[in-house]
Design a protein around this nucleic acid. Structure first.
Lengths: 305, 305
DNA sequence: TCTTATATTAAGAAATACTGGATATATTGA
DNA sequence: TCAATATATCCAGTATTTCTTAATATAAGA
């Protein structure tokens, strides 16, 4: 698969005909036809319905078109980042939703004392997406939980260590947690992060067989679903900061209670290293007794080997 | 850029040397070296530090490696979807965070009456990512707000129409909304969705110059930041369902109050069309007075032209 | 310092991509 | 309904790119 073929496909979709697309990609219509045929052969599916003129994209063709757009965007974004194209003065920051997001408004307000002209572009997404975007240069840094194996261009520094809780809807009888896990509908945290594995591993160790009702990939959404009475689950402490979370029944998960860490991930070589170091300091302060100070060396990098 | 080059780059990163990578990609070491040089020429940057053996990826090289992995994953996911590889019996559903997510637990529980073996894999992400994933076949459907121009392979059916509110921290004096917008720190909703444009357009129409303090791309995060006292913003009704949101000061946004719609987006050709139609029905019922019934024809498709 | 392993260079072979011209097919207008 | 027009495909030849082979250069280890 060649990005030139993908550009041709996108050109056909915008121009309407192979002939006009040929002008756009500086090829002959014959070459355009051959490129599409090569793509169809590689994917083993027809991308165009050819009984009409001009040919019309099939449903599979439309899917491949979306993939093409995504891939070309990745290519262009990476090229822009390598060229050093950036909005001056804006910190591109990412965060997962249900961790330290409640801390960020205070942190950003405090940061303005040090950097009065600092403007923050905050994108909330999933750990895996955020890490990928930091690695690819689309974000300067992101707040994510501990991962097994960050990309080698990145380093992760924890600023929060928090305990895990087994949570159930208000009024649930929790005298026997093992029976609870075996009988109540279980909302499984499904995500490519160590926390999900940590929870699954401990549940396997307990020898229970949870009755899965759903797999959800964000902690905040899981808390919302438990609150709505859907079932029980396991979540970290910081996800339970809302006043009505006090009404959820909760039990320490693991004995001793299991903890996990939240930190900042950034590129090792970054023009915003100083700002990010300060952000880390501010966030650790805001975590009070759960706060973790940054160490002098990039110890997380050492540990992740 | 050719996916064969990207596979080579990934192989070098996992195997450690050009020579061993050559075995993996079934080429000679010379061809591997030439592929990497071609990539470096296209990107106009060095990907490897060559003063050591084996050569070591530069920071730019590591960024390109991440892009390569992302692109190859897109390619593989699309190929798998085209082949029809799917987990049997699981509904791959996406949702934005702060819209109808509160409705989903009830909806999923009700759906189990009709489909007792239905299992739902719920992924919470951003509108643009969700739409892209539905188009590319990674999700069966997603709950997103109205967009200008869905990909042509998709159709969107609204089930909720809700009003917008100007919100401020508890205790804010809101007798003069124009002065408020001109003076208080403003948290701008920045996202590639019509709602963001709708809000920006109305604010321009009002002739105010907001004092931006942050740009955030998720509504739930904006509400969280307003609650924490960071500033004011404009959000839709459903984002204000939590009990402590009652403490926020709010004002109808626009005169008459502006509304926006939430719906389900799905592929026009989908094996789960029936299940998704039922999900739409259940969600519209759960919205009560704000619910929107699905029309007989794919009217949204017509309207989006 | 010498040997070994790996990467690069140069030249040629093999494979692929593209052009040009002819043909096929769909659409449009008379 | 038929002819004209526009567009896509097929086929063969040419141009370009990719890969292999052999020789050379470079780094690392004994």
């Amino acid at each position: 698969m060649d990005t030139r073929q993908l550009k041709t496909l996108v050109a056909i979709s915008t121009q309407g005909t192979f002939a006009r697309a040929a002008d756009i990609v500086a090829l002959t219509p014959s070459a355009v036809s051959q490129q599409i045929q090569a793509l169809e052969q590689e994917l083993n599916t027809e991308l165009f319905e050819r009984t009409s003129r001009p040919p019309k994209l099939t449903p599979h063709g439309l899917q491949v078109l979306e993939m093409a757009k995504d891939m070309l965007r990745l290519e262009e974004d990476t090229k822009a980042s390598l060229r050093g194209d950036r909005i001056a003065g804006t910190l591109m920051l990412g965060s997962v939703r249900s961790s330290a997001l409640n801390l960020l408004p205070k942190a950003i307000l405090r940061m303005r004392n040090l950097y009065p002209d600092l403007k923050t572009n905050l994108r909330v997404s999933l750990s895996s997406t955020l890490i990928s975007d930091v690695a690819a240069g689309r974000l300067d840094a992101a707040i994510v939980a501990e991962h097994l194996g960050f990309p080698p261009a990145l380093r992760w520094s924890p600023f929060l260590r928090e305990p895990l809780w087994l949570i159930a809807p208000e009024g649930t009888d929790i005298t026997d947690p093992i029976r609870l896990l075996n009988s109540r509908p279980y909302i499984r945290f499904r995500s490519a992060v160590p926390l999900a594995n940590l929870i699954d591993t401990e549940i396997s160790r307990l020898g229970v067989v949870p009755q899965d009702i759903a797999e959800i990939d964000t902690i905040g959404s899981i808390v919302t679903c438990v609150r709505q009475g859907m079932g029980i689950s396991v979540v970290p402490h910081v996800a339970l900061q809302e006043p009505e979370d006090d009404r959820l029944t909760r039990l320490p998960f693991g004995s001793p209670q299991i903890t996990r860490q939240i930190g900042i991930v950034e590129r090792i070589v970054s023009p915003r290293g100083e700002i990010i170091a300060h952000m880390h300091e501010v966030l650790a302060e805001l975590c009070r007794e759960h706060g973790v100070r940054r160490e002098v060396s990039t110890s997380a990098t050492v540990m992740s080997r």
